[in-house]
Nucleic acid binder design. Structure first.
Lengths: 154, 154
DNA sequence: TATTGTTATACTCTATAACTATA
DNA sequence: TATAGTTATAGAGTATAACAATA
């Protein structure tokens, strides 16, 4: 619903690309869609946080600290996420060969399987919606996705 | 970071608008940006949930149930949000004149003030980022915002 | 009986502060 | 001392189930 309306879509020409106006509309749209994505995916084996960590580990072993930095969470939060993943057998731990303080985390075969499965499930709702759009609108969303990635990358 | 990469941006022409591929990229971008928006706004007087309820009430009085349905949360969650807002003096309560079970919620002058203030603060980070883009990219994001609104509207 | 709203309780995710073990 | 990781604890947000008051 139009959170910051009643001025939604109204106003003078070019207003939509005014940084403040655009930011407000974009924030509303993103927060709303993200909430929807969260609730639609609630039956999953892994939570959103666990999922992204699993995806990171698919690309190679990482320490807890590296993962925390990439995910922009504090160390204890990552400890919790990793603990949940190891409890499910989706991630394995190994003491770093050179530095005994560090623990190298790796994805397990089970983890790879869950990741593939979750990937489809998590986007099922959005896929259905997106499939109803025409090619032009899908192209807009594709470009927006890349822009948002860059915006929020830091 | 590119959650579902390493295949980010790679692939055959037109792949980006394949519903499944697009949905995956879009989901990643949206979840990441939403987390960033939440953490950047952490110093606010009102939480994201409280903010959107306040915005709803600016457009007229509503009952708790109406608000819960619009926000897609369960009744107890809305009770909690409304309780927080009334405790801060941003929302007032009045028994419905016709139906004694219902309680009409309205935004107070203080609430209107906080809403205006929060509106700017919450989008400040995104505004700064968006301002760095060129007109064409901003137009893409504007159109994407409207598409996302429609997608997640139900 | 059905509906509106609340309370009780629990779960998830996140954070800060304090602790252990290693370098 | 500094760093990697953990534990303890707290706060925000959501949910389900059980309850009260009103229709």
């Amino acid at each position: 619903m139009d959170i910051d309306a009643p001025d939604w879509r109204s106003g003078w020409p070019g207003e939509a690309t005014q940084p403040d106006v655009l930011a407000r509309e974009l924030r509303t749209a993103i927060m709303r869609t993200s909430r929807r994505l969260r609730t639609e995916a609630s039956g999953d084996v892994v939570s959103p946080g666990q999922y992204t960590v699993l995806a990171q580990l698919r690309r190679g072993s990482r320490t807890s600290r590296e993962l925390a930095e990439r995910e922009r969470v504090q160390a204890p939060s990552m400890t919790r996420i990793v603990k949940a993943l190891t409890a499910k057998g989706l991630v394995s731990r190994a003491v770093h060969p050179q530095d005994g303080r560090q623990i190298l985390l790796s994805i397990t075969p089970d983890g790879e399987g869950i990741l593939e499965e979750a990937k489809g499930q998590r986007t099922a709702w959005l896929s259905r919606r997106v499939a109803l759009l025409d090619e032009e609108d899908r192209l807009v969303l594709s470009r927006a996705a890349h822009l948002l990635q860059e915006l929020s990358a830091e």
